[in-house]
């Protein structure tokens, strides 16, 4: 059976970059794959269309809580390889599925993502929250202070509006710290941690370790080629030419800077202090040095 591995992240932490890298690794083309045709990894776990296809239910007529009760079974069904039984589905060595939901339970107490039945493991992408803040603000077209508010909000959700239908289900992200903690501390499935900064500074070694966790040993030449094909310059070039379908509507420049430490010239001191106050313990846990005086208790 083809294993399912979640690609879990708070937004703007390298998840899409990794998916495009993998898609290039598995591509037979000698040019970079089209970023709007990434067939080699599943679309996001919260996608409505695949749920409706598998359950045969019009989810637009279900409430968010009713959907959450059915999500574990739909993930277990897909992970068991049932959706791959369709002749038109492509087959790849691992079924990678992106997810922005925190690792939470539904109101029946079941793991939303189906626990061990929904996935064999997870690669968790994290990024310095100070860099996430600036990128997230751009992503949501809001001031940086509002992005910082949302990153501290334990009730923050994507796609929670009830007066329209979204192509994605409601996703509870929790706070930035809460999201990361939910994945690191759950005991249902093994987790491999990838720091965006490490993926940037030594892409080959970091990607190789993450792929090894998923049971993949890439050819070094092909991996180098995939890394080059997924460079920030290439991603920006394609987005400028045709846009990026996975970007929020009206956001230009999904692939914005692709750097580490950009917060030093993008954030005001009070914003830096606020993020470090909100998320200090988790920053410490992940090895992100704080620039302001530590007043919180260490984890």
């Amino acid at each position: 059976m083809i294993p399912t591995v979640w690609l879990a992240s708070y937004p703007k932490s390298g998840n899409t970059w990794f998916r495009i890298l993998v898609a290039n690794l598995w591509s037979k083309l000698d040019t970079p794959i089209n970023i709007n045709l990434i067939h080699s990894t599943d679309s996001i776990a919260s996608g409505r269309n695949q749920f409706d296809r598998q359950t045969l239910i019009d989810s637009a007529l279900l409430t968010n809580d009713e959907i959450d009760r059915l999500r574990p079974a739909s993930y277990a069904y897909a992970a068991a390889g049932n959706t791959l039984a369709d002749p038109d589905d492509p087959c790849f060595p691992v079924r990678f599925v992106k997810v922005h939901d925190a690792y939470i339970r539904n109101d029946f107490g079941e793991a939303l993502l189906g626990g061990a039945a929904g996935g064999a493991g997870a690669i968790l992408f994290v990024r310095d929250p100070r860099d996430v803040a600036a990128s997230f603000a751009h992503h949501m077209r809001c001031p940086i202070d509002m992005a910082i508010d949302r990153m501290a909000d334990a009730n923050f959700c994507f796609a929670a509006a009830t007066d329209r239908v979204d192509r994605q289900f409601r996703q509870r992200l929790l706070s930035w710290s809460g999201f990361t903690r939910s994945w690191l501390d759950q005991r249902d499935i093994p987790v491999h941690l990838v720091r965006y900064e490490d993926l940037l500074s030594d892409t080959a070694a970091t990607a190789r370790a993450a792929l090894a966790f998923a049971g993949i040993e890439p050819d070094p030449v092909q991996l180098d080629r995939a890394i080059a094909f997924a460079s920030i310059g290439e991603l920006q070039r394609q987005e400028a030419q045709h846009g990026f379908r996975e970007a929020p509507r009206d956001v230009r420049g999904f692939f914005r800077r692709g750097v580490a430490g950009g917060w030093r010239d993008e954030l005001h001191p009070h914003q830096i202090a606020r993020i470090e106050r909100d998320h200090g313990p988790m920053m410490d846990r992940l090895g992100y040095d704080r620039s302001t005086v530590i007043t919180e208790q260490r984890l």
Partner: peptide, 11 residues
Amino acid sequence: LDDPEMVGPTW
């Protein structure tokens, strides 16, 4: 159902 030949998440 008795002896189902296909079983989905809801069907």
